Simulated assay, not measured.
Amino acid sequence: MTLVRIEILETQGSALSKPDAHFPIRLVDPVQIDGKTVIAAGVIGEGEVVHAKRSSMSGGPGELILAARWLDVNGRKVGLRSMHISESGKSAIKDVNRVLFASVATVPVAAAIGWFMTGKEVVVPSGTHAEAKLAADFTVEP
């Protein structure tokens, strides 16, 4: 299968993206066969938010999974696969446990502080590059 490099054109994040939402992508490098360009760089396509979950108040990290779906080549949707950005934010659960353990020995009011610590959100900024594969062989009209 042919690898392609794409660019995500809109910022996506665990706190701002919604599952099943679509976002624009762009082909970064041309696709060439036998030295001939068959898909020009700059072709626009679409990605999809597969999963998005905000970080939790108990310290759980944000989660975000994105997938490239297709490129528009002269009105024809050329499918993409095997690209996803699956990243988790930094967990604050260990820090919460440390705060709670320490607070038991101090004053009861301090015990509540740990519950207000949140994990980190995941953000994929506009302009992020990723790789995907063409989902099927690409044929060129003579």
Rank of each mutant, 00 (worst) to 15 (best):
K94Y: 06
V123G: 03
K94A: 15
A102T: 10
N74I: 06
L100P: 00
V109D: 13
V96E: 01
A112Y: 14
T139Y: 15
V124R: 01
W70N: 01
V78K: 08
A102Y: 07
A110Y: 09
S86Y: 13
G89T: 00
V78W: 05
N74M: 12
V96G: 03
I113G: 10
P125C: 03
I65M: 07
G79S: 11
V107I: 13
S86W: 05
W115R: 15
K120H: 08
A110G: 11
D95Q: 11
G127N: 05
A136T: 15
S126C: 11
A135F: 12
L66V: 09
D95E: 09
G89F: 02
V104R: 12
I113P: 02
D137L: 13
I93D: 02
L66D: 06
R76N: 13
A132N: 06
V73G: 04
K120L: 06
A111Q: 08
K120D: 12
K120V: 01
E131I: 12
L100M: 14
I85Q: 01
A130S: 13
V73E: 05
R81C: 09
R81T: 07
S86F: 09
V104L: 11
T128E: 00
G114T: 12
L66M: 09
K77C: 04
L64S: 00
A132Q: 08
E131S: 14
I113E: 08
E63M: 04
I85R: 00
T118Y: 01
V107W: 09
V73S: 02
R81A: 08
V99Q: 01
G127A: 07
G89W: 02
H84C: 11
V96Y: 01
D95M: 11
M83W: 06
W115C: 13
D72H: 05
P108D: 14
E87R: 07
